[in-house]
Design a protein around this nucleic acid. Structure first.
Lengths: 171, 171
DNA sequence: GCAGACTACTCGGATTTCCAAGTTTCTGTC
DNA sequence: GACAGAAACTTGGAAATCCGAGTAGTCTGC
């Protein structure tokens, strides 16, 4: 967990004042960026703490959820990487770890012998259920916002993701 | 830079559908959390790429800006850590690197011999100016949003930070 | 039917971050 | 003024991530 020491003031607002005092560009973008970085840190700290008793990291939990949601409980590693936006090497690492924990098993692809499938085990399904309870209970570290505000936040971030080319805008 | 492969659809919206189909809790928080994680990845990719020619990471850039904004161009390492929400070890590492690059120099604290000051050098000030230009030019990877939307985003995230105890709410 | 291009995964190395433990220096209490 | 406890930083070790390069398998065009 990253340190979450409290400050006596809003360091981001203070940085913005200084930024504007120097006539630097894009203070709005700077504030938003720094805020996202910080909130990401907060969320990760909350979620990681909730998952620690289950010996899961957020990344491994996300991978497990992805498999749980998949039609047959298994996916090629490459597909997992593109869904989770992870480097192939990271997927290998994550699946290694999950496999060692018995939550996932590697299996051969029926037709393409290059690809490896990761299949969630029964134990993996049980753990993901427990983990989801634990994480949900923390409100994902976003306790301060109402459901409507969270949806608003998601919508704003969605615009950014589209602008960044994450996926095509769909009307 | 993390891989930013495009998908043909909104993976977060899809995950939310599945989440709700199973009656799992807090789908709004899940969507918002995942969105923040992804946008953080996008921003970091954009900023890191802009900073790479200057051989700076985002963390080192932030540290440099903090020193540039400080009254005397220097701060105790501990203070840097609490401002940037970094572990003391990370601060040591960052200052080590910046010092090796000649952008910062360590100095003794005038009265407290336990504490070490990091002071930004003239070269450091020159680099931070260039880096700020480079980063501003990318719009911090947040090109898709208007200034008003960015401010809205910052305000929503501020609520989260307050709820997490980052700093006390000030009216 | 085969050569070359492409795809999927893995291995080694570098970077970054954190935690735990240790050293030096201060501070407050008696 | 001495000592216990706190504070500030550094060192060593673990985990996670990325990149580059390598290996094995598949597909395409001629």
């Amino acid at each position: 967990m990253p340190p979450s020491r409290s400050l006596e003031f809003d360091a981001i607002a203070e940085a913005r004042r200084q930024w504007e005092a120097r006539d630097w560009y894009a203070p709005e973008a700077m504030s938003a960026t720094t805020s996202i970085m910080r909130v990401q840190q907060i969320i990760l700290a909350a979620v990681d703490e909730a998952l620690r008793p289950l010996d899961l990291s957020f990344a491994r939990y996300e991978a497990l959820v992805l498999l749980e949601f998949s039609r047959h409980g298994s996916l090629p590693l490459g597909k997992m990487g593109s869904r989770l936006m992870l480097h192939p090497t990271s997927v290998t690492n994550i699946v290694d770890r999950l496999e060692r924990q018995g939550l996932v098993r590697r299996a051969a692809h029926p037709t393409d012998r290059r690809t490896t499938l990761a299949r969630i085990t029964d134990q993996g399904r049980a753990v993901v259920a427990k983990a989801t309870d634990a994480v949900s209970a923390t409100g994902f570290g976003l306790g301060g916002l109402t459901a409507a505000e969270l949806d608003h936040l998601t919508a704003l971030l969605r615009k950014t993701r589209i602008a960044a080319g994450d996926f095509p805008a769909t009307p």
